[in-house]
């Protein structure tokens, strides 16, 4: 056997035992019935999938999709000017890139907690607002959709900046000179030359933000305080408190299918692999 084949053995083991096997188990659980005390039982049934069409669960999927789309859009609006700024500076470019990268290396948990600290009733923002006299009682900033949206945007913003920056950096400056020579005003050149040419970066950024936001569990749980139930929380709930493993498996598989579909559509359009 060649060296290459030996080297792939542990990876095949990973693929079979820690990737394919869990998937197969979830797939079979999703077609089984719920046991009386939790767990799973025969007979085989479609019931977990038909239950997904309950307006309650469709609503949770819709809520997740809207929050994920909103977070993606906000990230795009916030990240584009920042990426433009970094690509246009000549000095300290490396430093700015490092500043964007830094959150990758800091704990996601800690960064989410930071907003819990800032937004709570006795947090910095409410304390400051009351000290200045703008408000007299604490604003309910935490445990709502806005807090979750903010947490998602904050958590995944770097994923949007870097791919947009990468395309802006490769942009041919002579195209912009041509636009200016032909009489385009700076704003027109920005929206009709720079933005369209950075579309690959924008698409990559959007997919990198949308996918983790759609399946988010930690952010809605911590900043939504259990009041905001997204698909990720629904899955967790079915496997812990509700003890309905078949339904939890079905929800997981539908979530996986949605994520794969988003990725597949992106890859078909872009024709290249991420990273």
């Amino acid at each position: 056997m060649k060296l290459r084949s030996w080297f792939l053995v542990p990876a095949w083991f990973w693929l079979a035992a820690l990737f394919a096997a869990p998937f197969a188990i979830i797939l079979s659980y999703s077609f089984l019935s719920r046991g009386v005390y939790g767990g799973i039982e025969l007979p085989w049934t479609w019931e977990s999938y038909t239950r997904l069409f309950d307006p309650l669960y469709l609503g949770i999927f819709l809520h997740s999709a809207i929050l994920a789309a909103g977070a993606t859009l906000l990230c795009l609006l916030l990240a584009f000017p920042a990426a433009l700024f970094i690509s246009r500076t000549r000095r300290h470019k490396y430093l700015y890139l490092q500043l964007v990268m830094l959150p990758f290396w800091t704990s996601f948990l800690v960064r989410t907690y930071a907003w819990l600290f800032l937004l709570r009733d006795t947090g910095l923002i409410n304390t400051a607002l009351q000290a200045v006299g703008i408000t007299h009682s604490p604003l309910p900033l935490l445990y709502n959709n806005g807090a979750v949206l903010l947490g998602l945007v904050y958590g995944y913003l770097p994923f949007m900046v870097l791919p947009i920056y990468a395309t802006l950096e490769r942009l041919d400056p002579t195209l912009l000179e041509a636009a200016a020579d032909l009489g385009a005003r700076p704003w027109a050149a920005l929206f009709r030359v720079v933005v369209p040419l950075s579309r690959p970066g924008i698409a990559a950024g959007c997919i990198l933000v949308f996918i983790p936001c759609l399946g988010a569990y930690l952010t809605p749980d911590l900043l939504g305080g259990g009041r905001i139930v997204l698909v990720g929380n629904l899955v967790q709930n079915q496997f812990t408190t509700s003890r309905d493993w078949p339904f939890g498996s079905a929800v997981s598989l539908v979530l996986m299918a949605l994520v794969t579909l988003a990725l597949w559509r992106y890859l078909r359009r872009q024709g290249e692999i991420l990273v």
Partner: peptide
């Protein structure tokens, strides 16, 4: 790549089930 885009909670529960 699929393992990279799988939502963490799905990875968690499928490993738990395994």
């Amino acid at each position: 790549y699929l393992s990279l885009v799988t939502p963490e909670i799905v990875t968690g529960i499928s490993l738990l089930a395994l």
